[in-house]
Structure formats: C-alpha cells, structure tokens
Nucleic acid binder design. Structure first.
Length: 764
DNA sequence: TGCTTCACCATTTTT
DNA sequence: TGGTGAAGCA
C-alpha cells in the first residue's frame, strides 16, 4: 500500500490536502468536486475532464472525512473505464481504493447476486449467459413451444424479451399487455425462458440488473444493507442508463440521496439497447434538489474541431444546451474528402495515414471510425497492401470464438451442474457419439423429473429411450466430467482446471488430429486461454474473495469482459472501429469514413425516426479527434453485393463551411498503375487527391466500364515466394482478380494478397 | 450421425 | 459480398 499520493500528501490528510486536491481544477470542475451531500448532476461535454471530476470528487469525499472508502460505489459501463478510474483514484488516495466498489453495473450486480441469489431461488453458483448462450436458450424454448422459427425469428424474440427486461417488465406483465400474434409468441417464450433460466441457475446480462432490482424491492433487509454500505454512489456515462439501472440507483439512493451522475446527453447513442436519454434530461425533475454543473471547457480538441462538433449538434432539438470551447489553438481545418468508391476511399485513408506517420504522428494515435463493422473489410485489405499495421476493435471477439466458448462452457458446467446450455454446447464436442436425439432425451428427462442436467447424464440408464450405444457414450462423458469436477474441487488454480479439461475431454487431441492451419490456430487460442487463467491465478493470490470459488470468480470475470478491453495501446497500430465503440476514446487523428446518406445516417435509423441519435453518433466521432479530422464519403459503394450511388451525408453540410477543407479526388481506378510495381499506390492516391476533378460526369453516366483487363497472374500454386515483412512462403491458391493465397512458413499464417501490389517475389 | 449444399439475409451492441 | 442455418444426402 502506498502512503504518498499524487499531491504528496498522505491518505485522507484533511483540509489542507482537500484544498490542494481542487487547486488545479477549473471553477466548474471544482464546483462539482466540492459539492457536499445530495444529488449532483454533472453535464460534462466531450473532453471536459469528467473522469478527473469523478476521481477527484471521490478523493475529496475521503479527504474531507465525508466518506469512508468502503462506502463508495462508483459505477461505469465498461471494465476498461472502471479499471482506469480505480487506477486514477488510487493515484490520488493510495491503496485504500481497494475497499471501494469501482466497477460496471453488471459486475456490481453480479457481486451482490453472488451473495444474495439464493433468496430468489437461484443457486449461489449461478452461471452468466452471454448473448449467444441466451439466444440458444431462447431457441430451445421456441422449439419446445412449437413456434415456427421462420415466422418469428428467435433473435427478434430475444431482443423483445431483452427490451422488456430493460423496462423492468416481467413475463407476466408482458403477457397481460399482449397485442398481436408476435407479442403473444414472445410472451410465451419469455415465460418459459424465465423458468428454464432459473432451472439452469443461469442469468443473462439483463437478468443481472433486473434480479438485483427484484432483490432490493422484495427484501427490506437486503435493501437496508446495501443502502447502508453504499452511502455515496457515483455514476459515469449516465446518459446510457436504462430503466432498470435507473431503478437500481433509485433504490440505493432514495434515502441518503448522495447520488452523483456524470454524463453528456450529446453522446447518448445506445437507445437501441434500452438506454433512455430521459434519465439524464429529466434528472432535475426526478431530483428537484439536485445541483447541476455544466462542464464546457474542453481539454482535448482544437477549437476548429469543437466548432464543427458544436455546429453539427446544434441541429438537434431535444438537447440540453452546451457549447464546447478551449483555451487551445484553432488548429487545422477539417477535411472532407469525396472519393469514387469505397476502394478509393480506403486508399485515400491509407495514404493519409502514411503521410501522418511520416510527419511524426504515432500510428497508435490514428483511428478510423465507421458506422457498420462490415466497412472494415475493404479498409483492412487496403491497409494490408499498404503494409500499415492496424488492429480492429469489434467483430469476433476472443471469447466468441468457438473453441474458447467450448472451453468456457466446460468450465461453466463444472461450476454449475444445472447449466443446460453449456451442457448442450460441449456434450458432443469433440464428437463422442451423443447426437441430437440423445441430447433431447436427456434434456427432456431433466425437465420431467426436475433434476439438474448433471444428475441426469450421470445416470443415463434411467433415461427412457436411450439405446445401449447412447448409454455407453453418455456414461463415458459423465465419467470424464465427474473426474474434472473432482479435480476442480481439489485445486485453487483455474489454469490447472482449464488444462485438465482440454486434455481429459480429448478436445486438444481432436484438434491435433485435424492437422489444419485453422485447428492449429484454435490450439493457440486455447493456450492463450490457459495463459489468461494463469494470470488470473497469480493476481488472485493477492486479493482473494471468500464469497466464491476461484473458478466462479474467473467465469464471472471473463463473461463480463468487453471489446474495449482488447484495445492495445503500447503497440504501434492504427485502430479501426465502429463509431459506437469509439465513445470514451481519443486520438490525435481521426477518420470517419462512409459519410453518405443511407449509411450514415443509416437508412434504418432515419426510417425509425432516430436521426438525432445518428447525429449524436457523428458528434461522438468528431469529438474523439484531438488535432486532425477527416470525413470521407464515396459516390458509389457496393454493399452486400450490389453497388449503389449515394448522396453525401447531410451531416457534412451541417458543419460550418469555413471550417472545411474540401478534397474531391478521382483516383486512377483499376490496373493502370500495376506496371509501376507494388508500392506506388500511396503516391498515386496522393497525387490523385491533388487532381481535384469535378464530379460533373453526371453521377450515373459512366459506371467505370473502362478498366483494362488485368495482367496475367504470374504465380501458380506451389511457387515459393518471399515477402519483405512476412518472410518466406508458398502459394497455396490463386483466385480471380490477381489474388494469391500464400502460406508463410514463419508464423504458419495464410494470407490473401493482391499479386500486383503486394511486394511479393518469386524464389527460383 | 455428419457432411455438403443451397437459400437467405445483412446497423449500431458498454454487459 | 460474406456468413449463417436448415434441409438433403451418403
């Protein structure tokens, strides 16, 4: 534990320290930090130092003796944000931050439920289901109820149930309010789903919140207990709270009223997930005695970027008024670039990135944002060709990969014998001759006799309808699981359990037998999981939690991990992500691509009347940039197969014209430059930008028929090649459009490269 | 039981 | 365009 803090004072040193704590804050920030008891609303514009206010407020509450560390509950939405906050509080007050709850809504609820869940009929060792697990469960319910999944898509049903839960509407209430046939189907599934989840002792993400609310509403003693524990509650990103979270805060705070919420209505972009912007807009109505502080001074961006953001958001009606300003320089103009199509757009972005890097911008300070994840593909291809190292945030996550999910499902089943979804996931993976028939019989028997699925498969003889073959196969599976469970009970090392699972279930063996590159990759991923577990074991030795076993704790932790947690900062990688994922981050240089009507704002959103939220999303994108900002659009874009012509996004015309530097680029399309050899693309694209030709061809007239035929592919399967960065490899495939597939011997990776542009050389 | 083929569909997603 | 899921076949 550290005694010295950032301000050189020992922990909680009283008035003098408190004074120094606020000394270098601006007046508004100081006002927020020094607010005493009672509700506080901090409307914090982008980059206005809201985390600073939150952390300093916590330190100030401690320093002035108003709060003890254990009385503080600080809530964020991501683990990353929680980690950062804890770290920064730690720097202010030292190790006492350990005693505080600084975590996400979901983690906090999971922790409370871990202690109290039995009161609601759950086992203490409940399993947290992620989206795909709970979708599985919904599907099973749909099947069981004989609902035609084509008529009512399980996904749609699930999202309907989720929406209901976010509103704290339970299945009974939902059933009473049914409208059409779809709602009726949803009501039935919702009802069964709730029952099956309790039986499996499983909770989905929404349940974590809803069940905690239930707990506090139903049991006065529990309510009192947590009200007494959390005398000070602080919430970050308050604009993103949904009904359930709102109710939770109300339950915790309505007595002592020491609730601090920090947020920015301009950055509310999650209404489709149930976030209710009214929570922040109407905070002052809900808490008439609330003190409100407005933070408008921005410490991140240039005035030009802020003016652009202000100009954009001024087009929204339903907002609190805020106007960002900075002491800093005006900075460069915002670039709006018009390109032919998405490929030209990608090349433009890539060449601009190269230029930035040459000029000294660290690559990890460059980000590209887009509306849809699908847009990353073209960009990735281009970045590979330009040899620009990058990372993509979003898409398939580590914990979404099949092999990882399998391993985690094994762990879940070991920890929670009732976990039916995990059971179906792993029972025949690897193949062990337990097919759907057999699984269905096991599950329905479990439903009939009301026993845990584990008890049922441990006694396969008693399951009606199983043939001797099936009984034998199930027996073998049960024996392995029993052995693993014993193993888990006799050790505190999660890594050891994971290792045992991979070995004893034959999982690794099956992968090794495949002898493919993919299988090898999977094995590597699994090894990484063992590594993650080992790391967990090491950290756990420092701070153990007696409430739950290491395995349970590990499972809860990895299930609540988020995408942003994967962000790497140290490596020199440009970052690609959706605009939604960009919230809370900042970069020196930002590109927002695909600024076209129909794509951004997305046509769906416009149809559904969510234009203002789209505009807020644009606002989020713009305000991520510290120094340089590009907004690009393509005249023509192919989206799932067919290409279409789009108008520039209305958001572009909403930016004040005097802040804009316009580029109209006509890149040389196609193969014209191929003869010049690989690396010339960068300069080509850049030269073309200077060209500034007009878009006067009339839009629809000439759909690029003039491409010369590609030069013949000089490579054939089996050729040995060498690449300056990937090393030696062999051609394993030749595809249309001069794409070659190369397996590189260095890391065993297989990559698709454009033969004409990649700096590949044939080895004689 | 398990693999292949074909049809269908396709924002965003802090947990 | 590409990934997913269900039906059909060996």
């Amino acid at each position: 534990m550290r005694d010295e803090t950032e301000y050189g004072a020992p922990v909680a040193a009283g008035a003098d320290y408190a004074e120094r704590l606020v000394a270098d804050l601006n007046p508004r920030q100081r006002e927020a930090v020094e607010h005493g008891e009672g509700p506080l609303l901090v409307l914090a514009g982008a980059g206005s130092g809201k985390t600073r206010v939150l952390t300093h407020r916590i330190a100030w509450l401690l320093a002035t003796g108003r709060a003890r560390p254990s009385e503080i509950l600080a809530i964020t939405f991501t683990n990353k944000a929680a980690g950062e906050m804890r770290e920064r509080v730690d720097r202010l007050v030292g190790g006492v931050s350990r005693a505080m709850w600084v975590m996400t809504f979901h983690s906090a609820c999971a922790r409370i439920l871990r202690a109290e869940a039995p009161r609601l009929g759950y086992k203490r060792a409940f399993t947290i289901y992620d989206e795909s697990d709970s979708l599985r469960m919904v599907k099973r319910c749909v099947e069981e109820l004989d609902i035609d999944p084509k008529r009512f898509a399980p996904r749609a049903i699930k999202s309907q149930i989720s929406a209901a839960k976010n509103q704290l509407v339970d299945s009974t209430e939902y059933g009473n309010a049914v409208g059409g046939p779809f709602e009726e189907a949803v009501a039935d599934v919702y009802n069964l789903y709730e029952r099956r989840m309790v039986e499996a002792s499983a909770m989905d993400f929404d349940d974590l919140l809803v069940r905690t609310v239930n707990l506090l509403e139903l049991f006065a003693d529990i309510r009192e207990k947590y009200r007494r524990i959390f005398r000070w509650v602080l919430v970050d990103e308050y604009q993103d709270t949904n009904r359930a979270q709102y109710r939770l805060l109300q339950l915790l705070c309505e007595e002592h009223r020491n609730l601090t919420v920090v947020g920015d209505d301009f950055q509310s972009v999650y209404s489709f997930r149930g976030a209710d912007i009214r929570n922040i807009l109407e905070f002052e109505r809900d808490f008439p005695d609330a003190h409100t502080v407005l933070l408008e001074q921005n410490y991140r961006s240039t005035q030009t970027i802020l003016d652009a953001a202000n100009g954009l958001i001024a087009h929204n009606e339903n907002q609190k008024r805020k106007q960002l300003w900075t002491d800093g320089p005006r900075g460069d103009l915002v670039t709006i670039a018009e390109l032919d199509d998405e490929h030209a757009e990608a090349r433009y972005v890539a060449s601009e990135i190269n230029r930035l890097v040459e000029e000294g911008t660290p690559r990890d300070q460059i980000a590209v944002f887009y509306r849809m994840n699908a847009q990353s593909r073209v960009l990735e291809d281009t970045l590979v060709r330009f040899e620009i190292p990058y990372q993509v945030i979003g898409g398939t996550k580590f914990y979404d990969r099949a092999e990882i999910k399998d391993a985690v499902a094994y762990l879940s089943l070991v920890a929670n014998p009732a976990d039916a979804v995990s059971f179906t996931r792993v029972v025949n993976s690897p193949r062990r001759g337990i097919g759907q028939q057999t699984q269905a019989r096991l599950l329905s028997h479990a439903n009939t006799i009301g026993e845990d699925i584990w008890d049922v498969f441990s006694n396969p003889e008693q399951v009606p309808g199983l043939g001797p073959q099936a009984v034998k196969a199930v027996r073998r599976f049960a024996d392995v699981m029993a052995e693993l469970r014993e193993r888990a009970e006799s050790t505190d090392s999660v890594a050891e359990i994971v290792e045992a699972i991979l070995q004893r279930t034959g999982y690794i063996e099956a992968l090794e037998a495949e002898r493919t590159v993919e299988a090898e990759g999977r094995i590597e991923n699994l090894e990484e999981l063992v590594g993650v577990a080992a790391e967990f074991d090491t950290n756990r030795e420092l701070e153990g939690d007696q409430e739950q076993t290491p395995l349970e704790e590990f499972l809860a932790q990895i299930r609540l991990l988020s995408e942003q947690d994967n962000l790497k900062e140290q490596e020199s990688l440009a970052t690609l992500m959706s605009l939604h994922n960009a919230k809370g981050l900042e970069y020196d240089a930002v590109f927002v691509i695909g600024c076209e009507e129909g794509l951004f704002p997305h046509s769906r959103s416009v149809e559904e009347g969510n234009l203002e939220e789209e505009r807020r999303l644009a606002y989020v994108g713009v305000t991520r940039a510290r120094e340089r900002l590009w907004l690009t659009f393509a005249r023509r874009r192919s989206l799932h197969g067919s290409s279409s012509w789009n108008l520039p996004s209305r958001f572009l015309s909403e930016l004040p014209e005097d802040l804009i530097d316009r580029h109209v680029a006509t890149t040389q399309t196609g193969w014209a430059s191929a003869g010049e050899g690989g690396r010339s693309w960068g300069s080509n694209a850049r030269d073309a930008v200077l060209g500034g030709s007009r878009r006067g061809e009339g839009g629809f007239s000439a759909p690029e028929r003039r491409q010369p035929t590609p030069p013949p592919v000089p490579y054939s399967v089996g050729d040995d090649v060498v690449h300056p960065s990937f090393g030696e490899g062999v051609i394993t495939g030749v595809e249309p459009n001069n794409v070659v597939v190369v397996r590189f011997s260095g890391d065993g990776s297989e990559r698709k490269l454009m033969a004409d542009y990649a700096p590949l050389k044939k080895v004689a």
